[in-house]
Design a protein around this nucleic acid. Structure first.
Lengths: 125, 125
DNA sequence: TGTCAATATTGAAGCGCATCGATATTTCGT
DNA sequence: ACGAAATATCGATGCGCTTCAATATTGACA
């Protein structure tokens, strides 16, 4: 017997109910992970993260992020805000400038969740 | 001297050019990774991947994917197509039904790329 | 306090995406 | 060949997101 009613017609011999595993992602959790991934799924934001990650001190002044990405200052400011509100980066004001750095734990969490969902990781945590 | 011209005004004492690391993500590579992540950044597609990953046999008949997600059949078909074209899942027709499974290598690649960009992984590969 | 540089916000334009109903296509069994 | 079930495609709708120019806000310093 199938877990659903899709293949129980008179003609088809049933597809044997292939879905029986334990599902951990309810609608809410799926939306939450998708939201985090959506923040990461932008070329400008990915390059911002890389600029932060590859910087010798691990942090970069916002004023040094506009030119290398070839976008306007408001656009960079917008993306930094999106990353900050998703807690994927940290920001700290020091005098005139604001310094940004990657929030490694938050990125790790998103990556781990994605691995769990896709079965790459046996959901150890 | 700064790597850009943003903080070279008369008043500000320069922000010391914090961007000096080696950047591997050019615009094209960033768009490519962002495209893959965009495919993953959808609640329905994440739950589809989990249904495939947690299925005992590792594969699920498409007919068993419509009901548990509460979306219409065209919508599920659309998402399966998106996942398939991104090569994140494999599909195989067996008789009346089509069986889907997670393409673990593709997911692994995307995850590894994300880890590299964010500095979680020392880019070993 | 007033000025200048850095950063944030606003408002609008343009594009892409998720979703559905309706319909077409494919495949099997009779 | 025909009918039924599974899957795919089409067309439309509504929402969200990226981007920019213009403007506001914030903070340092004289």
């Amino acid at each position: 017997m199938s877990t659903s009613e899709c293949c129980d017609g008179a003609e088809a011999p049933d597809c044997a109910g292939s879905v029986t595993g334990v599902v951990t992602l309810d609608e809410v959790a799926a939306v939450k992970l998708a939201t985090a991934l959506k923040v990461l799924a932008d070329p400008v934001r990915l390059r911002l993260l890389e600029l932060l990650a590859t910087s010798p001190g691990g942090e970069v002044c916002a004023c040094d992020l506009v030119e290398p990405l070839g976008r306007s200052q408001p656009t960079i400011s917008h993306h930094l805000k999106v990353l900050r509100e998703a807690e994927l980066i940290n920001s700290e004001r020091r005098g005139t400038w604001i310094w940004y750095s990657v929030n490694r734990d938050a990125v790790r969490q998103a990556v781990a969740a994605l691995q769990t969902v896709t079965g790459l990781h046996p959901a150890l945590a």
